Computed example of a mutant assay.
Amino acid sequence: MINFAIVFSVFIINLELCGFGLYGIFTAVSLHISDNRDKLMFIQTKPGENATELEFFPAERVYENGPLAVTREEAAEKSPLAARLYEIDGVAAVSLTADSIVIAKSDARDWSSLRTEVFGAIVAHFKSGDPAVSEAADETAPGEFDAEIIDQIKDLLSTRIVPAVTQSGGDVSFHSYKSGKLFLKFQGPAFSMLTGIQNMLRHYIPEITAVLDYRESLPKPGLNTPEGIAIQKLLEEKVNPSIAAHGGRITLVDLQKERAYVRLDGGCQGCGMADVTLKQGVAVEIQKLVPSIAEVLDVTDHADGTNPYYQPS
């Protein structure tokens, strides 16, 4: 049996992302193998959208057909890589993309120690030769038809959308496409143009049913916590039935420590009374149920509402 030791060297470099200086961590992982063959594997990490997430970029392709969120329950059958990562105490969620692995941790662990264990698991996986996703479970590979749509999307982005967005100091790029849902990466003021971008893409490619920020495809472990489950039950059993007569619906899209993020759909999207409904009704009920929630934030694109029960004031 070949024995090897893992040596980590951490370098802090300054990354310029979205016009802001952001410190990222580049970690060189050196495998010192007993037969005197050395293999260097460089793993870059980048902070996620919140303190519970960290994105790992190994010097290998991860999963070409990503993003793919893999739950703990399905990891054993679906993804050898995710299964290995879930063996680490504190790993709460795993998502695989073409060139990265997004890990969400539990509140009980901090990254200072957990990061090292994740590095070791990633290195061990690539050394094993196992696939990131098992062939039988690979249901996300785009078919020939989807591949044609993706080519059309990329062409529209490069020829029509990106030139217009960059004039405003922003940028937008393709992330993934699956089952009619297109996920894009927005930078700077580009996100404020989401409605216009979606309208253009859906005009030329009617197969697209929704254009979303790529973060919508990332794992959201907060939804599976006792608090997240309780809030979702509250919305389904108490809140949504009361606003159904207006054609509205409210969905919990994420839960991050003391913040709950909700989206208002149907008659609530674009409604002039949406802010009142949220702050004086829904938020009060959520905070009564889960006192640790300090804020309930609305992530709805109200400018795209087409049939609000109340007209915007």
Rank of each mutant, 00 (worst) to 15 (best):
Tyr204Gln: 14
Thr97Ile: 12
Pro291Leu: 05
Glu237Tyr: 08
Thr116Pro: 00
Glu87Ile: 07
Lys233Tyr: 01
Thr277Ile: 05
Ala190Asn: 05
Pro189Val: 00
Asp254Arg: 12
Lys238Ala: 07
Val102Lys: 10
Gly24Ile: 14
Asn3Thr: 03
Ile103Gln: 08
Lys233Gly: 02
Asp89Asn: 08
Arg37Glu: 01
Met273Gly: 08
Ala98Ile: 11
Leu255His: 01
Ile101Met: 10
Gly188Glu: 07
Gln232Tyr: 05
Val29Gln: 00
Val165Gly: 03
Gln280Asp: 15
Val118His: 08
Ala190Cys: 04
Gly90Arg: 09
Gly267Met: 03
Lys185Asn: 14
Val133Thr: 10
Ser113Met: 08
Met273Phe: 13
His175Glu: 15
Ile12Thr: 13
Asp254Ile: 14
Ser30Phe: 03
Pro221Met: 08
Gly90Pro: 04
Asp99Arg: 11
Pro219Gln: 07
Arg109His: 11
Ala51Thr: 07
Asp304Gly: 00
Lys238His: 06
Arg215Phe: 12
Ala59Ile: 01
Ser34Arg: 02
Gly247Met: 06
Ile6Lys: 01
Leu252Phe: 15
Glu285Gly: 04
Arg263Met: 14
Ser106Phe: 09
Gln167Tyr: 03
Gly196Lys: 05
Tyr310His: 15
Ser9Leu: 14
Gly305Asn: 08
Asn240Thr: 06
Gln311Leu: 13
Gln167Thr: 06
Ser292Trp: 01
Asp130Ile: 08
Ala244Pro: 00
Leu22Phe: 13
Leu85Ser: 11
Thr45Gln: 10
His203Glu: 06
Gln187Asn: 05
Ile103Lys: 04
Leu157Glu: 06
Leu255Lys: 00
Asp155Arg: 15
Gly222Ala: 10
Val296Thr: 02
Arg263Glu: 15
Lys279His: 13
Lys78Cys: 14
Asp38Cys: 02
Gly24Pro: 06
Asp146Cys: 05
Glu53Trp: 00
Gly196Asp: 11
Ile197Phe: 07
Ala283Val: 05
Ser292Pro: 02
Val262Tyr: 10
Gly24Ala: 15
Lys78Pro: 06
Glu258Gly: 09
Ala147Trp: 00
Tyr261His: 11
Glu64Leu: 12
Ile293Gln: 04
Val296Arg: 05
Glu73Val: 03
Phe42Trp: 08
Ser113Phe: 03
